[in-house]
Design a protein around this nucleic acid. Structure first.
Lengths: 361, 361
DNA sequence: CTGAAAGCGCTTACAG
DNA sequence: CTGAAAGCGCTTACAG
């Protein structure tokens, strides 16, 4: 078996093979395959037949190598965790928008790890990625912009040399000017607190992730905005941040329920934390007297009793808008960087409409 | 702006640029970058410095173009729907297994559409994919094997010419010999029925997807196996297949409840159908007197009341096993095609342990 | 309308 | 240890 032969058998047919079989020059075969036009009908026919007979598929990499634009038809989508519903919905939405353009999607999970983010961004850019949708993991992304070049700042050079458009999703870029599409985290959180205050609650606790995560920071700010707007006092004892898991939220809620002055309502600023809180309330049989509003919708929240009220985001919309923006940049749009903020929607289902109950002695 | 210059600015640095800056030949620069070895320490140092200064990143496509193996470091993962929890978990597991090897993942959704499957498989193979993990959409996959070549049948040639390993997930291959990793659908379904029969149920209804879907067919068979094993009669009126949505399942359950001889238990053979069934029972206030066992775990099923019993699959394990098998094939393993069947696990939570209640008149 | 030559960025196969 | 030449599969730039 010669080194140019694949282990299993025949060499993959090349354009040269097609040309030879069709009895034309390579360039003519290329013209037919790329539908460049300007080829006599007879030769078009011959080339088409050869392509079919050999099962010829153009090599996208070789094509991109010589072409000026060097487009490989690949969009990278780097998100927090491909297996979580939010990331998964964003990915799917991007896929649906770019597929009709013949683009293929490279996907990766960053797990909130800046190191992994850097590695994956490099890996992906080394593979001729045309564009990047990024849910940023670390804080500052100046490194991404080392060679920020384009007018509006929407195109990043950096390790790439060649300008590659980048659109941030879910979180605004820090330390770099770039396009972004995200939910209105702050306003959504504010609205949740307003909703609970409207039901009569004066002691609303916050359960949130590590404020190092951009969205957690925003939601914390929104929570405080909401307290101020409702004229409620700010009680640090009700503010539980740094919660990184469902179990952590569960423990935090149990502790809150046992406090001297327990909250009558909870605003859980993240999906897993909502689940943990509900679990704690069920464990104590308190699900009907402590109100809950969660940020980000929970699958089958409406099947729970009480059904869980949430501030819903629209990951599908965020992904689609990001992909559309990316395509526009790929098409040469050099206008100023955009920051698209998608509104959230409060979905009342029961848990957020419970009225305050005097704490049992 | 010359045609070889990117819109935004500097040309991406090439190995030639690195060599020039380091004052060495291109081949020497290549040796350093690929860590081939056999280069004097002084030159290694000079090349490393040049790489750092220019921000050089090797072009994976150009590399693969010349190399014999033609590996681009890409694994494609084509699943039913990247936004559904099962597919998402499989994808994530594959990613975790291949990442340490420096491979990047191309992901796509097939939506049970054979046409789309064919298009995506071709798109992906045209881009120098090293291996493929496929959750098959259509029925027969003979087309994939048009040029099946390798000994064990685990390598597919087809449109590729060059052998590309393929591992099927979730469903066994039809019309082609290939590796597969899947859950034990039939046995899981049989176990669900046995569990319900064990609780005293004699009228167990089945809600299932279109039997054209391989897993639906298997679970239907398992349901019948279970009836036979428990000595229960087979009542076609209790067998509701072709259910393609949550709403369809909901409607089917409402109809079953209104029947002359309603079931006392439900086996819902798919996640969305389980949700639809639960919704219908809640709507009628019957959730405590009709037992339910679902196939495939539902997020937060344990927070529902009653909590939902399920036959759990392990998508993470399936994805990981598939990826490991694929890597072995990439490493040259030519042994016979494998069919790895991962056992399911019955998780009792409440809904599946309810005892039969005489139907209200 | 057609095709031979050069070149995309890299590695292979060779010769020093 | 080192590097010039050839070539991977394709497209660009040119000359018929």
């Amino acid at each position: 078996m010669s080194p140019t032969t694949a282990p299993g058998g025949a060499r993959r047919p090349t354009l040269r093979d097609v040309a030879r079989l069709a009895g034309v020059g390579v360039k003519t075969a290329s013209r037919v395959v790329t539908e460049e036009g300007g080829v006599s009908p007879a030769k078009v026919e011959a080339v088409r037949a050869a392509v079919a007979e050999l099962g010829y598929v153009p090599d996208a990499a070789a094509r991109g190598l010589r072409r000026g634009d060097r487009r490989a038809g690949v969009v990278a989508v780097l998100l927090e965790d491909l297996s979580n519903p939010f990331s998964a919905s964003v990915l799917r939405a991007v896929e649906d928008v770019v597929r009709p353009r013949g683009l293929v999607v490279v996907a990766g999970s960053l797990d909130e790890d800046p190191e992994q983010e850097r590695r994956l961004v490099r890996a992906v850019l080394g593979r001729r990625t045309d564009g990047l949708v990024l849910m940023p993991a670390g804080g500052d992304h100046g490194w991404l912009a080392r060679e920020l070049e384009a007018p509006g700042g929407a195109l990043l050079g950096g390790v790439l040399g060649r300008a590659v458009p980048v659109v941030f999703v879910d979180r605004a870029p820090v330390g770099v000017v770039a396009d972004a599409v995200r939910a209105d985290d702050r306003d959504g959180a504010r609205g949740a607190v307003a909703h609970l205050a409207g039901a009569g609650h004066r002691r609303v606790a916050l359960l949130a992730d590590d404020p190092a995560v951009w969205t957690a920071q925003e939601r914390l700010a929104g929570y405080r905005d909401g307290l101020v707007a409702a004229g409620l006092p700010h009680d640090p004892a009700l503010e539980r941040t740094g919660l990184r898991s469902e179990a952590a939220a569960e423990a935090a809620v149990l502790a809150l329920l046992d406090a001297d002055e327990p909250p009558t309502a909870l605003f859980t600023a993240q999906r897993r934390l909502t689940a943990g809180a509900v679990r704690a309330l069920l464990a104590r049989g308190r699900e009907r007297d402590v109100a809950v509003v969660g940020f980000d919708d929970v699958v089958y929240a409406d099947l729970l009793r009480p059904a869980v009220s949430v501030v819903a985001q629209d990951p599908g919309r965020i992904g689609a808008l990001a992909a559309e923006l990316l395509l526009r940049r790929l098409d040469g749009d050099r206008s100023a960087a955009q920051d698209l903020v998608v509104p959230t929607r409060l979905v009342p289902r029961g848990s957020g409409e419970l009225r305050p109950v005097a704490a049992a002695p």
